[in-house]
């Protein structure tokens, strides 16, 4: 620190600061890819049986022994396999701690166990099933049509390119860029947390696929103008200029008007 403090007023310090700022602006960003392996499953009686065991040991404390719901958790009769696959598959359930909303974390169960739990909950009452692969293939969707639907139905919470946004009292709409196609579909279908439900009459499976295609398209689009700053729009960009741009301007002004020793 002493070294840093000593060099603070060095004539080169300004140049170094400026270079750091420039490099950060033009800095590289990582391209990510997500793969999804979803399938509409046929559940066997054994799946249901195994699922019930898992449910009783892991979920029943809050959701009740027969998934009828308790003060601490909603009833799960009729929520369907899609809801279980989404909530457990994204690690939101089992809930780590109570709070404004469930957090994403590494899933605690294997694909097979999640499928068994889905089978059990699906057996309790009719509800949306895990989507078929056909509707998860973003390459078959129409990103332009999906963009129209996204801006009408999703963008107010999730931001126009799905970067997420704040809701009331600590709740928030998550960033969608790294959510798998299957989980995007299931979220629309089941309306997790405070998200409204978009059933098949509202957005048809084909339209949901268009929405997925749009989300994939915008989140994988490279940014020609340097760092995206989270695609959060004018606030993030304004803050960057406010802190770094203005600081540079003030620094140069002070240096210009300072008397030489």
């Amino acid at each position: 620190m002493k070294l840093l403090a000593a060099r603070r007023r060095h004539p080169m310090a300004l140049v170094v600061l400026l270079l750091v700022g420039l490099l950060m602006t033009g800095g590289a960003y990582a391209v990510f890819t997500t793969n999804s392996t979803a399938s509409a499953e046929e559940y066997t009686a054994q799946d249901v049986e195994e699922g019930e065991k898992l449910f009783v040991t892991n979920c029943a404390t809050c959701h009740g022994m027969n998934a009828e719901g308790t003060e601490n958790g909603p009833g799960l009769v009729g929520v369907g396999a899609a809801a279980v696959d989404f909530q457990v598959g994204t690690g939101r359930m089992p809930l780590q701690m109570s709070g404004p909303q469930a957090q994403v974390k590494t899933p605690q169960f294997s694909e097979e166990q999640i499928s068994q739990m889905s089978a059990y909950v699906a057996s309790l009452g009719p509800g949306p099933a895990v989507p078929e692969d056909e509707y998860l293939d973003a390459s078959q969707g129409d990103p332009a049509a999906g963009g129209g639907l996204f801006r009408t139905n999703c963008a107010m919470c999730h931001n126009v390119v799905g970067s997420g946004g704040a809701l009331t009292r600590g709740k928030y709409a998550p960033n969608l860029s790294e959510v798998s196609e299957k989980h995007l579909y299931e979220a629309m279908q089941t309306g997790p947390q405070n998200m409204p439900i978009f059933n098949d009459a509202n957005l048809t499976p084909e339209q949901k696929r268009d929405v997925i295609a749009y989300v994939r398209e915008v989140s994988e689009q490279p940014s020609a103008g340097g760092a995206k700053l989270g695609s959060l729009g004018p606030v993030a960009e304004g803050l960057f200029i406010w802190f770094f741009g203005l600081a540079a301007v003030i620094g140069i002004t002070v240096w210009l008007s300072a008397r030489s020793k």
Binding site: N153, I197, F198
Partner: peptide, 9 residues
């Protein structure tokens, strides 16, 4: 079609 929890624009 407007099930509980749905929002239509």
């Amino acid at each position: 079609d407007v099930t509980i929890g749905s929002a239509f624009h």
